[in-house]
Protein backbone atom coordinates (compact mmCIF):
# COMPACT_ATOMS: atom_id res chain seq x y z
CA UNK A 1 0.00 0.00 0.00
CA UNK A 2 1.38 3.35 -1.04
CA UNK A 3 -0.85 5.49 1.17
CA UNK A 4 -0.88 5.92 4.96
CA UNK A 5 -4.53 6.85 5.33
CA UNK A 6 -7.76 6.89 3.39
CA UNK A 7 -7.68 10.67 3.05
CA UNK A 8 -4.18 10.44 1.58
CA UNK A 9 -5.56 7.89 -0.88
CA UNK A 10 -8.32 10.29 -1.92
CA UNK A 11 -5.90 13.21 -2.12
CA UNK A 12 -3.43 11.34 -4.39
CA UNK A 13 -0.55 13.59 -3.44
CA UNK A 14 -2.47 16.69 -4.52
CA UNK A 15 -3.53 15.21 -7.86
CA UNK A 16 -6.76 13.70 -6.49
CA UNK A 17 -9.11 15.67 -8.72
CA UNK A 18 -7.32 14.70 -11.94
CA UNK A 19 -6.80 11.05 -11.05
CA UNK A 20 -10.37 10.47 -9.88
CA UNK A 21 -11.73 12.45 -12.83
CA UNK A 22 -9.89 10.12 -15.21
CA UNK A 23 -10.96 6.91 -13.49
CA UNK A 24 -14.51 8.18 -13.05
CA UNK A 25 -14.92 9.19 -16.68
CA UNK A 26 -13.45 5.90 -17.89
CA UNK A 27 -15.76 3.82 -15.68
CA UNK A 28 -18.85 5.84 -16.55
CA UNK A 29 -18.21 5.76 -20.31
CA UNK A 30 -17.55 2.01 -20.22
CA UNK A 31 -20.70 1.34 -18.17
CA UNK A 32 -22.72 3.42 -20.63
CA UNK A 33 -21.29 1.43 -23.53
CA UNK A 34 -22.04 -1.92 -21.84
CA UNK A 35 -25.60 -0.94 -20.93
CA UNK A 36 -26.35 0.48 -24.37
CA UNK A 37 -24.98 -2.69 -26.00
CA UNK A 38 -27.22 -4.94 -23.88
CA UNK A 39 -30.37 -2.83 -24.31
CA UNK A 40 -29.55 -2.54 -28.02
CA UNK A 41 -29.51 -6.31 -28.33
CA UNK A 42 -32.92 -6.57 -26.63
CA UNK A 43 -34.22 -3.81 -28.88
CA UNK A 44 -33.15 -5.69 -32.03
CA UNK A 45 -34.91 -8.85 -30.84
CA UNK A 46 -38.07 -6.89 -30.02
CA UNK A 47 -38.06 -5.20 -33.42
CA UNK A 48 -37.75 -8.49 -35.28
CA UNK A 49 -40.53 -10.01 -33.15
CA UNK A 50 -42.84 -7.07 -33.87
CA UNK A 51 -42.20 -7.32 -37.59
CA UNK A 52 -42.87 -11.05 -37.47
CA UNK A 53 -46.17 -10.53 -35.64
CA UNK A 54 -47.24 -7.91 -38.17
CA UNK A 55 -46.43 -10.22 -41.07
CA UNK A 56 -48.25 -13.13 -39.45
CA UNK A 57 -51.32 -10.98 -38.98
CA UNK A 58 -51.23 -9.80 -42.59
CA UNK A 59 -50.90 -13.37 -43.78
CA UNK A 60 -53.92 -14.41 -41.71
CA UNK A 61 -56.03 -11.55 -43.04
CA UNK A 62 -55.04 -12.45 -46.60
CA UNK A 63 -56.01 -16.07 -46.04
CA UNK A 64 -59.36 -15.10 -44.54
CA UNK A 65 -60.10 -12.76 -47.41
CA UNK A 66 -59.29 -15.44 -49.96
CA UNK A 67 -61.61 -17.82 -48.16
CA UNK A 68 -64.41 -15.23 -48.12
CA UNK A 69 -63.92 -14.56 -51.82
CA UNK A 70 -64.17 -18.25 -52.55
CA UNK A 71 -67.32 -18.59 -50.44
CA UNK A 72 -68.85 -15.60 -52.18
CA UNK A 73 -68.06 -17.03 -55.59
CA UNK A 74 -69.54 -20.42 -54.74
CA UNK A 75 -72.66 -18.70 -53.34
CA UNK A 76 -73.11 -16.79 -56.58
CA UNK A 77 -72.56 -19.97 -58.53
CA UNK A 78 -75.26 -21.74 -56.55
CA UNK A 79 -77.67 -18.85 -57.09
CA UNK A 80 -77.04 -19.04 -60.78
CA UNK A 81 -77.69 -22.77 -60.79
CA UNK A 82 -80.95 -22.31 -58.94
Amino acid sequence: MQFDSFSAFIDMGGYGFYVWLSYGVAVILLLMLIISSITGHKHVIKNIAQRKQREDKLRQVRKQRQKQDKDLKSDKHQEAVE
Binding site: M1, Q2, F3, F9, M12, G13, G14, Y15, Y18, V19, S22, Y23
Partner: peptide
Protein backbone atom coordinates in the same frame (compact mmCIF):
# COMPACT_ATOMS: atom_id res chain seq x y z
CA UNK B 1 -2.78 0.87 -10.17
CA UNK B 2 -4.60 3.12 -7.70
CA UNK B 3 -3.32 1.89 -4.34
CA UNK B 4 -0.25 -0.31 -4.68
CA UNK B 5 1.78 0.87 -7.65
CA UNK B 6 4.59 3.25 -6.68
CA UNK B 7 4.28 6.96 -7.44
CA UNK B 8 6.44 8.28 -10.27
CA UNK B 9 9.56 10.10 -9.09
CA UNK B 10 8.78 13.06 -11.37
CA UNK B 11 5.02 13.04 -11.83
CA UNK B 12 3.98 11.78 -8.41
CA UNK B 13 0.55 10.22 -8.08
CA UNK B 14 -0.74 11.81 -11.28
CA UNK B 15 1.12 8.99 -12.99
CA UNK B 16 -1.75 6.68 -11.99
CA UNK B 17 -3.73 8.11 -14.91
Amino acid sequence: ALAFAPADYQQGDSFRI
